[in-house]
């Protein structure tokens, strides 16, 4: 398989952890809550999913466990920032540290073990095309994530639920005045974000690279947070961004396989460098950031 076909075939799978986590974060941020604990929730989800699969629980149960664990962590976060109105940035960091610690605690004895991934589901005919065929040969989670992207995009832009969510994020006081239960909406949004981050971690740990290792998430949660900013909040761009980062992490592998004379550390830091670059490019347009951004992001509701 040549490099192009390889990248085309594997990009969607590599993009899925980014995509899932970003979608969750998108919903949370749309409601006005900046959740910087995504990385911690992803790591926790990854470890829980791995442990479940390793003990024969199957992939479905693994995703359930990951979603539940990360969702609970998100509720702790919500309790702090919504209940106690604590600073969202620092609470996010605290949750991140807590999640990393918890997962190291659970995952210590599973270091370097492996499990089996998921089978690929091919689209008939399309998957037999030359070069692009691999694009249509993906596992179930990838297909579901794409469906979720569409569903979340439509919900946010076309449904009443989406309108309520966005109103909560743009102007919580006005939303409160017209009778929207702001705190409850935000609670649900944060919980949803946590569950999605758990799924993202689970995908990375038991489907994409079914191997347990310390640092198996390696900053992907942070890149997911960055993606939401880079995408300046619409869903389609987040999918695009996730694919870019998926392809980027693969480009490193492909370049190594082809024997390109670059140090592996440079390739490993490529996703981070590109994140920095893209953040700079996108954020430089201050007007656009203000227009597209979420107005009350990071601020509690004052009554």
């Amino acid at each position: 398989m040549n490099a192009l076909a390889f990248i085309l075939a594997a990009t969607l799978a590599a993009a899925t952890p980014f995509l899932l986590a970003s979608l969750g974060e998108l919903v949370a941020e749309r409601s006005g809550v900046l959740n910087l604990g995504v990385e911690g929730m992803m790591v926790l989800g990854a470890v829980l999913a791995f442990v479940t699969v390793y003990h024969g629980g199957g992939h479905l149960l693994a995703f359930a466990a990951a979603g539940l664990g990360a969702g609970l962590l998100a509720l702790v976060f919500a309790l702090a920032v919504l209940g106690f109105q604590a600073n969202q940035v620092t609470c996010g960091l605290a949750i991140g540290i807590l999640g990393q610690g918890l997962s190291a605690l659970f995952g210590k004895s599973y270091e370097s073990l492996t499990v089996t991934g998921l089978p690929k589901l091919a689209v008939p005919r399309l998957s037999e095309l030359p070069v692009v065929g691999g694009l249509f040969n993906q596992d179930a989670v990838v297909w579901l994530s794409l469906a979720a992207t569409l569903a979340i995009g439509l919900t946010l832009s076309r449904s009443k639920l989406g309108l309520v969510l966005r109103a909560t994020g743009e102007n919580p006081k006005a939303a409160h005045v017209i009778g929207i239960p702001v705190v409850a909406v935000r609670l649900c949004a944060v919980g949803f974000g946590g569950v999605m981050a758990g799924f993202a971690g689970a995908y990375a740990a038991v489907v994409y690279t079914p191997l347990s290792a310390d640092g198996m998430i390696a900053g992907r949660g942070w890149i997911a947070v960055a993606l939401v900013v880079c995408g300046t909040w619409p869903t389609g761009r987040i999918l695009l961004g996730a694919c870019l980062f998926g392809a980027l992490s693969l480009a490193g592998l492909a370049a190594q396989a082809e024997g390109v004379g670059l140090p592996s550390q440079l390739l490993a830091s490529l996703p981070y460098l590109v994140t920095i670059l893209v953040l700079g490019l996108i954020s430089a347009d201050r007007r656009r950031m203000k227009l597209k951004g979420v107005a009350s992001l990071g601020e509690p509701l004052e009554r």
Partner: peptide, 29 residues
């Protein structure tokens, strides 16, 4: 990056931490 391009210092400084560790690995290996 923050002053010139308005990029979030939270994300940039954290990303640079990951890069720093790769530089360390590169030098030591």
């Amino acid at each position: 990056w923050r002053v010139r391009f308005n990029a979030s210092e939270i994300l940039v400084s954290l990303m640079l931490s990951f890069v720093a560790i790769q530089i360390l690995n590169y030098l030591l290996l």
